[in-house]
Structures are given as C-alpha cells and as structure tokens.
C-alpha cells in the first residue's frame, strides 16, 4: 500500500506532459473546428434547387404555391425570396393519377427537391442573380416565368427581356468560370422559359414568344455593345467588365447558340390559373432525372 503511492505519482507525472499538451491542443482546437463546421452548415443552402425567376406579376409565387398546395392561392408582390422543399411526387402526381396518395408519399420520402422563389421587382432581382452566383453547381434548373399576355407592349417586353439578359449573362459567367476550373466542360444549366397566363385573350403563343425574345435579346446585345462603359470598369479587371451575351462576333442571339455558353433553353406555354402546368412539371422531373 505504502509503496504504491510513489508509483502512482511517478506514473501520473511521466504521462502528464504529452497528454497535457495533447489535451491542451484539443481544448483549443475542438471549439474552433466545431464552430467552423456549424457555421459552414448554417450558411449552406439546399444541395440542389430549382430557381424561380422572372419579372413581377408573372406568377412565380403562384406556381410555387400551386406545386405545394395544389390549389390556387392569392399572392401579392414578394419582397423576399423563399425556399420550399417539395417531394418529387408533386411533379408526377398527375401522370400517375390512379397511383393515389400512397405512391406520392413513397416517392416523397425517397426524393425531394427545393424550389427557390425570388422576387421579380427590379430592385430585388439581385437576389436571384446572387443565388446563382453563390451556388452555380447546386442549381439544377432555372424557371424563367413570364406573363405571355403583356409581351405585346414594348415596355413590358423590354423589362422581361432585360431581366432575362442579366440572368443569362450571370449563367454564362458562372459557366465560364466552372469550365475553366474543371477538366471536362460541365453540362449546361437547363432553363425553362415558362410562358404563364396563356389562358388570357391577349396571350401570345410560345413559338411567337420564343422568336420575340431571341430578337429582343439580339437588339439588347447590340446596344449593350455600343453603349458606354460602366463607371467601375477598368478598375477591377475581369468581374465588372460586362461580357456580351453569347458569341462576341455576331449580334444575333439564338437558343442553340447559347447552348455552348452554358444554358439550354426551352420555351413552354402554360397557365397556372387554368391548371395547365403539366409541361413545366415534366420539364422539372426530366431535370431531376438527369
């Protein structure tokens, strides 16, 4: 008994130095590492999402709510973006209608996706653009919703096309930086131009809209090239030097031409009000499958 005490002491002392150091390091490091992990977790958005963009009053929030609730819910102008998690069953429900709700829940538990609704007010459009800039890889598809009934008026058309132009430019930039870093060129982002409200009398057909948008984008590209420099241009090199959309040598913009600049565009009509959004849903599920 009496002998064992010094042994214990020696044992304690001999072990103490390295253990002390290790434990000290652990004490210092663990909180830092933990906080880092927690912080990064909180900042990360959903791993894969659809982005819902487009000018205001085009029906973005209605579409989101329609997918979520399957009914029409009145909306007002959004001022913030909202991300909603939806089961993939939402998209397939109508297809396999007789499958019933059990099938829906099955797929819902296995797969889900996020849909990010962004405000369309001109002052808040940066929210959609930063969403792409922040997470270009996790954006599996972009739905650009527009009101097909107002495109015959020039100011609304300009507004619609200008937003689309900005959006395409951001995608193009992200694509360029992604393909620079990666060895193989990444797949283009699918973009659906959803021509909403085609139940209205003044609505244009999707083929006409597609044509109109390409012409307008071409014109916009032309004037942007001729226009004045930005105030910040020249100070910061690459980022603020606005690139032109698509091919630099021509003033024409075509959907096929844009494919090599990282975006695959399809144009489809529909109407949320008359519950005719099947083509959009199938587009979304094809994006999810890819």
């Amino acid at each position: 008994m009496t002998d064992s005490f010094p042994q214990w002491e020696i044992l304690g002392l001999s072990v103490s130095l390295p253990i002390l150091l290790i434990s000290l390091i652990a004490v210092i490091l663990i909180p830092v590492v933990l906080s880092r992990i927690l912080a990064s977790k909180s900042q990360d958005g959903p791993s894969s999402f659809f982005l819902l963009a487009g000018p205001r009053d085009s029906g973005k929030t209605s579409f989101l709510l329609y997918l979520q609730e399957k009914t029409l819910i009145p909306t007002q102008t959004s001022t913030t973006s909202a991300t909603v998690k939806l089961p993939t069953g939402v998209l397939e429900q109508i297809k396999s209608e007789d499958g019933g709700s059990s099938a829906l829940e099955d797929t819902g538990s296995r797969h889900s996706f996020h849909l990010k609704d962004t405000p369309g007010h001109p002052k808040l459009r940066s929210q959609a653009l930063t969403a792409i800039n922040l997470a270009p890889k996790s954006c599996i598809g972009i739905i650009y919703m527009l009101d097909s009934a107002v495109l015959s008026s020039q100011p609304r058309l300009t507004d619609t096309v200008e937003y689309l132009y900005e959006l395409l430019l951001v995608i193009q930039k992200q694509f360029a930086s992604l393909s620079e870093s990666a060895a193989t060129s990444p797949d283009p982002i699918p973009l659906l131009i959803a021509c909403n409200k085609n139940d209205l009398f003044t609505a244009l057909p999707s083929a006409k809209i597609s044509n109109l948008l390409q012409i307008e984008l071409g014109r916009m590209k032309e004037t942007k090239r001729k226009g004045l420099l930005n105030a910040g241009a020249g100070e910061e090199d690459d980022e603020d030097l606005d690139r032109v959309l698509g091919d630099e040598n021509s003033d024409h913009v075509t959907w096929e031409g844009l494919r090599e600049f990282g975006v695959e565009i399809s144009v489809q009509s529909g109407s949320i009000k008359s519950i005719a959004a099947e083509s959009w849903k199938s587009w979304m599920s094809s994006c999810l499958d890819a």
Partner: peptide
C-alpha cells in the same frame, strides 16, 4: 444597392431606336 438599382431600363440607344 436597392436604392441605386433602377426600376426601368436605362438603355438610351435602344429607346432612341424604338
């Protein structure tokens, strides 16, 4: 940013052309 972002198109050349 919200204050400075314009709500209308400022493309002068485009408007003149139109």
């Amino acid at each position: 940013r919200k204050i400075l972002t314009p709500t209308t198109s400022l493309d002068l050349l485009r408007e003149i052309e139109q």
